[in-house]
Design a protein around this nucleic acid. Structure first.
Lengths: 141, 141
DNA sequence: CTAGGTGCAAAAGGTTTGCGGTTAA
DNA sequence: TTAACCGCAAACCTTTTGCACCTAG
């Protein structure tokens, strides 16, 4: 097996791809499956290593291209901390990120509707935001 | 004149530098003065262009080094949107950023104490943040 | 005088692109 | 069949670094 997607995941991938006029390939499935399998916010390079267990000949360029495709299709989110390598995340609900200074780990922080509203409330008249990014750096126990 | 710092600004620069065991140079003054002069969040390359009006021989590497020094001294903040070139900002008070999709302009969004508290309130038990970044993308009128 | 800073050029590091061959539909 | 995709390598772009010269203190 070149990927471990559930039937549902396979369907949502293929739907999203075909809605965008894109093909379903084993590279895209494998990359998607790796992103879903472990939500530890891997970099492209991490994804390469993991995908190669199933698809030993995949290239880094293809990983980047697949990730971009998945992000464009709205299946995956790209997370940036400063200028560090981009990380990728299958959590599509609005959430913040917390980076632990000690371990370097990145955690998702759930945001309820009320929090999201109060976030947008900081914007003065005349500003309307389509997206936001909220990230913290600190220590976790 | 190689820079247009006010007396106060000159003092705070020199104080910060000497507190960190660093020298006052005309390159550092000029870069600092450019950052203070126009708070439009210039990139390192923008800063290079502007500083060269006063200091035609300054190199891009020196601009990067000076900016890093100023950031380390706490006089300037580095602002990143995704993986776009870093931008620099003299606003030291806690604030968010808003990037206008149409113009590409970046605006500072002031944050009052209450907003900052409610931001931190999204963190679950066990997480304590030293820093946060909040940025919006959308349209402004 | 001398440690630290500058300018230059080269390297680094992440990401993107061009191209010839491969594959999904 | 054929447009889209892949793998490879080279290019790209921002940022950092090494080194010889210069300068603030």
């Amino acid at each position: 097996m070149s990927s471990n997607l559930t039937k549902k995941q396979k369907i949502s991938l293929n739907t999203a791809l075909s809605q965008n006029g894109l093909r379903s390939t084993k590279q895209r499935s494998s990359v998607y499956s790796v992103i879903l399998a472990k939500t530890d916010h891997p970099t492209a390079d991490d994804v390469l290593t993991r995908v190669r267990k199933n698809l030993p000949t995949i290239s880094l360029a293809t990983v980047y291209n697949c990730l971009e495709t998945l992000v464009d299709c709205g299946l995956v989110r790209q997370v940036n901390f400063d200028r560090a390598p981009s990380r990728f995340c299958p959590n599509l609900r609005p959430h913040a990120h917390f980076k632990c200074k000690q371990s370097g780990d990145i955690f998702d922080i759930a945001l309820d509707t009320k929090s999201i509203e109060s976030l947008h409330a900081v914007l003065p008249e005349g500003f309307s935001a389509e997206n936001f990014e909220l990230s913290f750096v600190g220590n976790s126990l």
